[in-house]
Simulated assay, not measured.
Amino acid sequence: MAIEYREWREGDDLALLEIWGGPETVQAGQFRGTLAPSGNAPWRRCIVAEDVVDGVAIPVAAGVVHEASLHPERLWVYIEVARDHRRTGVGSTLLTMLRHEAEKSPSGVARLRCKVEPGTAGAAFAEAAGLTPIQCSRLVVVEPAALKLPVFGDGSESAASDQVEDLATGSVELSDVVGRYYTAVHGWDSPGELSIATVQRLFLDDLSGAHGAIVLRAPKASAFGHGVLASRKGRLEAFAISYAQAAPGGGGAAQDTAGEGASAQPTDVFLGHEPKLGADEARAAVRDLLALIAYQHPVLLELDDSMTALRAVVEPLLDSGKARVQGSETLVVSDPR
């Protein structure tokens, strides 16, 4: 076996697919899309390993390292090696070469991160390379009527309508809370301060797949103090954004889920809360909104370990069988350097 290394070239994707076959994990399927020619806008370096047999070079492995616009504190890295060439040093050599390239990234960032599935060859390789878990994420399906519906105020329809509202996804108020929540639960890999325009692009516009939004507000407040009739909308305490197709969230349009009962496909939902709420308030707000959107149809949530309020509500449902994990866990592993 004579291994040679070179830059990624046109046609390498098709040649490697013939050798690799289908992706072994969801993460592999996602990251294969990042294998592309090296460039600087955005910054990316991609290297291919070829096995030269009787003078014929056959691509057998590839690796890429690239900058991330949303989480700029680390570089994404991905390496895949054909099954019959693993444990031969090819992957380790590619990683060493990519680390060398990372040292020259224009941002000055050199720490690496990747997503792996526990118990896989990729997870074992990452561990051997010194990449350690910094976050665990699960996809959870909450079954219909898993939670008792909340009662708002005096239990009247008007009291409920004061606190539960369908909100346009273009709302600046919604964008502000979504951005601050996302930043708050990603302190382990900070996205930095997100502008309203960035939040709109990533989570709320048509290209993100956003389909609708529902919010939970605090009870109406008076603009003139105690004793004066309350007329001002309460502050936004929790939000749920629904997505027409698989995306990082979903919500108020849970009623748009196709099908009925247990056979319905779950609506993809991004559920969060005002990050300034106390722990008990956040948990109550998330619980009440989840009870509403999952009352008749199942919903699909992405549950990170850092989402403490959502975990406090969902994990008891997992224990009782009223919710279930879909697929395998995803670990984000990081170079500690």
Score class of each variant (00 low, 15 high):
E80L: 14
E80P: 03
V81N: 08
A82V: 10
A82T: 05
A82W: 09
R83F: 06
R83C: 02
R83Q: 07
D84A: 12
H85D: 05
H85F: 11
H85V: 02
R86N: 03
R86G: 01
G89S: 01
G91E: 04
S92M: 00
S92V: 03
S92D: 08
T93M: 00
L95P: 02
L95K: 01
T96D: 06
T96L: 00
M97G: 00
M97L: 11
M97W: 00
L98P: 04
L98H: 03
L98N: 03
R99E: 04
R99M: 03
H100M: 00
H100G: 01
E101F: 02
A102R: 02
A102I: 01
E103W: 00
K104A: 08
S105Y: 05
S105R: 04
P106H: 06
P106R: 07
P106S: 07
G108P: 07
G108K: 03
V109E: 09
V109A: 02
V109L: 04
V109R: 05
V109P: 05
A110Q: 10
A110I: 04
R111N: 06
R111H: 07
L112A: 05
L112D: 06
L112W: 07
C114G: 08
C114Q: 13
K115Q: 12
K115I: 09
K115T: 09
V116N: 07
V116W: 08
E117K: 08
E117S: 11
P118H: 09
P118T: 10
P118W: 06
G119P: 07
G119Y: 06
T120D: 10
A121W: 11
G122T: 06
A123F: 13
A123M: 13
A123S: 15
A123H: 14
A124V: 12
A124R: 15
F125S: 06
A126D: 09
A128I: 10
G130K: 12
G130V: 11
L131A: 10
L131M: 12
L131C: 10
L131H: 09
L131R: 09
I134C: 15
Q135I: 13
Q135M: 15
S137M: 14
R138F: 13
R138N: 12
L139R: 14
L139P: 02
V140C: 08
V140Q: 05
V141G: 08
V141A: 10
V142E: 04
E143V: 09
E143M: 14
P144S: 13
P144H: 12
P144K: 13
